[in-house]
Every structure is written in structure tokens, then in C-alpha cells.
Amino acid sequence: MSKRLFAEFFGTFWLVLGGCGSAVLAAAIPTLGIGFLGVALAFGLTVLTMAYAVGYNSGAHFNPAVTVGCFAAGRFPARDVVPYIVVQVLGGIAAGGVLLIIASGKPGFDVALGFATNGYGEHSPGGFSLGAAAVTEFVLTAFFLIVILGVTPKRAPVGFAPLAIGMALTLIHLISIPVTNTSVNPARSTGVAVFQGGWALSQLWLFWVVPMLGGIVGGLAHRAFLELAPEPRENIEGTEERPR
């Protein structure tokens, strides 16, 4: 269990450092900036790379909404939910701290201006309302869970799940960066909001409540409508034994 928790810590650390780091350090550099397309790709690459690196160990959640969604889908034990969420949040905060140290090395940097935080209303990149932000985060988190659960059963093609999950997260960011700066992950939101310290903390509740609900609904929807019954197996007499 300790190695699984370390895997979740390091994976979430990498996600926040790589994704939010690309937004804070590289997105807006004149002529060389990667823009929001580059930020979206960076988030997808963080999950893809760490899913290959440690997914065999912890399942590569790196996200409290994924953990509760997998639990809702019957894929994750209740006893491990809280420990996973705790280390994910700690990993996100640790990455936020490292990012702050790096970003503070540039003259004129001001963490109060945003620091890749998530927001709605006047703090939405595109000025989207609270309602629009909530719908966006809920729907995209639910579908993220449907993708994750769909590509990770034993009968799925081996070795391709991280690619699908990374591309799904990239797509999610392409859709929602203008709306909320994209959360779908409470640990990612918390990891930078605690250092911004102002409006980001006051709006953080949305980026916990809505992605967690979206994850649960996505997990339940997959379990109810998409999960296939176990494949038949042959009994010792050579006849098919179907699940009862």
C-alpha cells in the first residue's frame, strides 16, 4: 500500500507540475509561447507518461474524482479511497510549491494574478458564469471516468489505456480551458489555489464538489449501462460456465 500511495503522490505531482507549469512558465512567452493548445497537450502528456511509469502499481488515478468514480463503478475498494485522496492532494500542493519557487525567479512575477488556478465568473478565462462552469466540469469529469473505465478492463487491448486516457484529458482541456481553466481534478485545483491564496481559494469549493459528483455519476453510469458481464469460462468438463 505504501508504494501505491507513493505512486499516486508522484503521479499527481507530475501532473500539476507539468500541466500547471506549462501554463505558468511557457504559455504566454512572446513568439515562443505554447498557448492553450500546448497547455492542453501538456496535461495529457503528464497523465500518459505517469500512467505508463506507475500505473501498474497504483492504477494511475492522480485525481480524487477518478478515485471516487472508480469506487462508484465497483473497481476500487472503499478502504483505499481516503488514503489515495490525501496523497493526491499532498502531491498537488508539493508541485504547486515547486512551481512557485521556479516562477518566482522571474522579475515581475505575481502569484496573485492567477497561477494557473481555476475560476468562474470574472475569474473564468472567457468570463463564463458559475452555471456554465459547473456544467462543464460535471460533464467532462463524468465522461473522463467513462473513458478510463472503458479502456482499463482486462479484456481491453493491453498497453493502450494510457494513450486513450492522455488523449481524453487533452481533449477535455481543449474544450474547457476558456471556461474554467480546466480542473476535472480537485488535487490539481488545490495544488495551485493554496498558493494564490485569494479568490482561487474562495472558488475552490466548485472544483471539489462538481468534479467529485461528475466522477461518481460517470462511474455509476459505466457500471449500469456499459460494463459487460464477465466472459464465460470453461469448467473442468470443458463446457462453458456462464456467470449466474
Score class of each variant (00 low, 15 high):
I102G: 14
P64N: 01
I34C: 01
P178N: 02
A72Y: 01
G18P: 08
G119Q: 11
T190Y: 02
G21S: 06
F144C: 08
E8S: 11
G108D: 12
L45A: 00
H173Q: 09
V194A: 02
V24D: 00
A161M: 00
P230F: 07
A132C: 15
V81T: 12
T49S: 14
F128L: 11
E234C: 11
N63Y: 06
D80G: 08
F13L: 15
S129T: 15
L163W: 07
E122L: 15
G215P: 03
P83A: 12
L15D: 02
L130N: 10
E234N: 12
K106P: 13
F144Q: 03
H61G: 08
T31S: 15
A51L: 04
G55I: 10
F225P: 11
A187L: 09
S183W: 03
F109Q: 14
L99F: 04
A229C: 13
L213R: 03
L204F: 01
V87K: 00
A134I: 12
A224T: 15
A142N: 07
M167K: 02
I148G: 01
T190N: 05
E227L: 07
A133H: 09
F109I: 13
L17A: 05
P243Q: 07
P30E: 11
G121D: 11
G21T: 03
A78R: 10
G55E: 07
G97P: 02
V86E: 06
L37C: 09
L25A: 06
V39E: 02
T170E: 13
R188T: 04
A133N: 07
I34S: 02
V192N: 00
G18F: 08
V158Y: 12
F144W: 05
L5A: 02
F6A: 15
N185D: 09
L99C: 09
P125A: 12
F160W: 14
T49M: 15
G119E: 12
L171R: 12
V192E: 00
L90V: 13
F71M: 13
A95G: 03
G35D: 04
A103V: 14
V179N: 01
L171D: 10
G33E: 06
N235T: 04
M167S: 05
G19C: 04
I236S: 13
F207H: 05
F43K: 00
T182V: 14
P211N: 08
P157N: 11
T67S: 09
Y120C: 08
P162S: 05
V66F: 10
V217Y: 10
A229N: 15
V54E: 05
V209S: 04
V87I: 10
I101R: 12
V87M: 04
V16Q: 01
M1R: 14
V179L: 04
A156K: 02
H222E: 12
V158W: 09
C20W: 03
S176N: 06
V139H: 07
L37N: 10
I102Y: 12
Y84P: 01
S129K: 13
P77A: 07
A26V: 02
G97Q: 05
F10M: 10
M167E: 02
N57T: 13
W205S: 14
T31D: 15
V24C: 03
Y120G: 06
P83T: 13
K154W: 09
F160E: 13
F115G: 00
G127H: 03
